[in-house]
């Protein structure tokens, strides 16, 4: 197990390094759009280039970038002169940026995982009945309707027309309801579908037959044997779900005007603020790698069969 973990951690570190490199050179490929404003004089442009270290050869820039990255220094934002990218991302003063996105993501995760598991279990235990069919239909709708459609519709209906809930921000509990729900629908549906399928599969498993022939109560079989085993595939999907939450935050943050990382990312791309794009990309990538790594290790811990095999 330890060897497996060490190998995975090393692979993850290499992945992050390659990601940082690929992003750097990809963004260097972009035609020179920086300070392309014709009103800027050649002299001023040269000064700006020198200020951001863009006058050096690309490879030297790369080394500087790597050294800074190792010190968690992402340089200065181009669209917001004088602001360090690291402070923009962490922003302890206003609580925007990373803290804001993490709260949103955690709220959605905490809401959607138990909800999805519960609905999937309910559906699987009532297989073929009306409740099951209704839940299958609902989860299909939840998977197919894009999150930005759900978000725009619910802002319009619950926020603007009915006036029940605020449509911007993410600080008070009331403000948190709509963004969290909009972000959670898709993960809930995905988890519920998976949970249902894997629960139905346990129905014919040998250990369930044994438990039945021992004369165990149905409730005990369901909780102790079926649900516990059916949870395994759900754990593996938590990695991709975290990734999709990340993508969802882009939409939800821009619709609800929440100043989180997704919002910054979209802004930085339209502002062509490459330093910020680079920093956020590396951050998102690292986050995904760490999430997948955690899920893999968790999976090894939960399922002894995997631990023993490796």
């Amino acid at each position: 197990m330890l060897k497996y973990v060490v190998r995975r951690v090393i692979t993850a570190a290499i992945t992050v390094f390659v990601l940082a490199t690929v992003t750097f050179f990809l963004l260097k490929l972009v035609p020179n759009g920086l300070f392309a404003d014709p009103n800027i004089t050649a002299e001023a442009r040269a000064k700006l280039y020198a200020h951001y270290g863009l006058d050096k050869p690309v490879f030297e820039q790369y080394l500087v970038y790597l050294r800074n990255l190792a010190h968690l220094d992402l340089g200065e934002s181009i669209a917001n002169p004088g602001r360090k990218i690291t402070t923009m991302i962490l922003d302890p003063a206003t609580g925007n940026g990373l803290p804001q996105s993490m709260r949103l993501g955690l709220c959605a995760l905490v809401f959607s995982v138990p909800m999805g598991i519960a609905l999937g279990t309910l559906s699987g235990l009532n297989r073929g009945r009306a409740l099951d069919k209704a839940l299958i239909g609902l989860s299909l709708v939840g998977i197919s309707i894009p999150s930005f459609v759900v978000a725009t519709m619910s802002v319009t209906v619950f926020g603007n027309i009915l006036g029940w809930l605020p449509t911007t921000g993410f600080s008070t509990p009331k403000e948190m309801i709509l963004p969290t729900v909009c972000l959670s629908l898709n993960p809930i549906a995905t988890i519920a579908r998976l949970m249902r399928t894997s629960l139905v599969e346990t129905e014919n498993a040998d250990y369930v037959k044994t438990a039945r022939s021992k004369g165990l109560k149905r409730s005990r079989i369901v909780v102790r044997h079926q649900v516990r085993n059916a949870l395994l595939p759900v754990v593996t999907i938590l990695g991709p779900i975290t990734a999709s939450l990340l993508c969802g935050t882009f939409v939800v943050e821009s619709i609800f005007n929440i100043k989180g990382l997704g919002c910054y990312y979209v802004e930085s791309i339209s502002d062509r603020d490459y330093g910020l794009v680079m920093g956020l990309t590396v951050l998102f990538g690292t986050f995904l790698v760490v999430a997948n790594l955690t899920v893999d290790i968790l999976y090894g811990l939960i399922d002894p069969r995997i631990r023993l095999k490796r």
Binding site: L19, L27, L29, V30, G33
Partner: peptide, 17 residues
């Protein structure tokens, strides 16, 4: 490695080129 690059970055670069 490719799977952990957010596709927005690729879209951005390809769009600009």
């Amino acid at each position: 490695v490719f799977i952990s690059i957010p596709y927005m970055v690729i879209v951005l670069v390809v769009r600009l080129i």
